[in-house]
Design a protein around this nucleic acid. Structure first.
Lengths: 188, 188
DNA sequence: TGTGTAGTCTTTAGCTTCGAACTTTAGGTT
DNA sequence: AACCTAAAGTTCGAAGCTAAAGACTACACA
């Protein structure tokens, strides 16, 4: 249909541009503020592109995006890089069952260790290995290059403005959903 | 660390605040621009909260998020609301196999119809039913209320600024990934 | 006309996740 | 002490996704 052979800013495969998408929303659903829709659509599309980029990076390193998320949670928890499966599951928005299997895989790859907490034998402790920490560092190096590139067209002032506006959105939505640290369908 | 027992803006379940998360990144990975990290972390967290909200809404209507995405693509394609499974799969970032099954389910729920294209019998035409269009409308009504609430703290000027900054990010990343209309792992 | 080739779905097998039942441990109650 | 309840993980079966192979159609070329 559309001939996109020449314009590299047009998305491939007939994907509509942001403007076309907003126009389509106006056409099909009139009582919609175009300003609001522009922000929301841009957020949604941006997030998809970022996920594409992160997936490419992690697969280069021989780990999955799922594993990267676990490594990230453990590192951000600070030394000694330990968390329980349940806490990890909440942080990542997974069921405990999924977390069990994910940890299984990561243990066999030596990214983490799993052992019982001897002071409270119901609990399990998942701990980052040096290899896991190294993989996280490699992933962070790739991610930070990508992120810097993503923002390269914005001045320092613009970056600050964007960060502040996004933070205000986040505060609003986290206030409205104080419980949504859990998985998507876990509500009320 | 932080005592969040009283402050409703603090996320539940010990999830770190945005500031705590950025501080943790600084601690674990020094060569990271805090301004960049703030924007990226806010984007990531915002997206997760938005997905939570959309999932709640669609489940209220008795459809899944997956089905809502198909309805959305069909409606935005414009009347007569028809697309091929392959095109839908590309738009949604799925494999054709997954699209086949997803359409199966939606046909049994009378959200769409599926028939062969008689002018080219290799092709299949997926068409929105009146019921499917009605479900999409109901979902849009809920979504637009949520989206308006999300932006309620921003003035019109701020909304415009945010939309413009996000669009510049999107242009940058779509330029860098002209092929990423496909699924996440489909690269190069 | 016959054959090759490319394009468009569908089918199959394996993996990841979820929901729900189950096991084990800790702590309170009588 | 014996029991009850709650909490933390694991196991089990069903659902959805991917990758790869298969089936069918259209079109080009000899």
């Amino acid at each position: 249909m559309a001939d996109n052979s020449a314009d590299p800013t047009a998305a491939a495969l007939g994907e509509p541009t942001l403007e076309e998408q907003i126009a389509a929303y106006q056409r099909e659903f009139q009582d919609l503020d175009p300003q609001v829709e522009k922000v929301v659509s841009a957020l949604s599309r941006l997030n998809r592109r970022m996920n594409v980029a992160y997936s490419r990076q992690t697969s280069e390193l021989g780990i999955s995006n799922a594993e990267w998320e676990v490594l990230k949670a453990l590192v951000l928890s600070g030394a000694p890089y330990r968390m329980g499966p349940g806490e990890l599951a909440k942080r990542l928005g997974l069921t405990p069952a999924a977390m069990t299997h994910r940890i299984d895989r990561m243990v066999t790859e030596s990214l983490v260790t799993r052992e019982r907490d001897e002071s409270n034998r119901v609990r399990v402790i998942v701990e980052l290995t040096p290899l896991g920490r190294e993989r996280w560092l490699e992933a962070m190096r790739l991610a930070s290059v990508f992120e810097e590139g993503l923002l390269q067209d914005l001045s320092s002032d613009e970056r600050a403005t964007l960060g502040e506006l996004l933070t205000r959105l986040l505060i609003r939505v986290e206030h409205a959903q104080p419980d949504a640290g859990g998985r998507l369908t876990d509500l009320d």
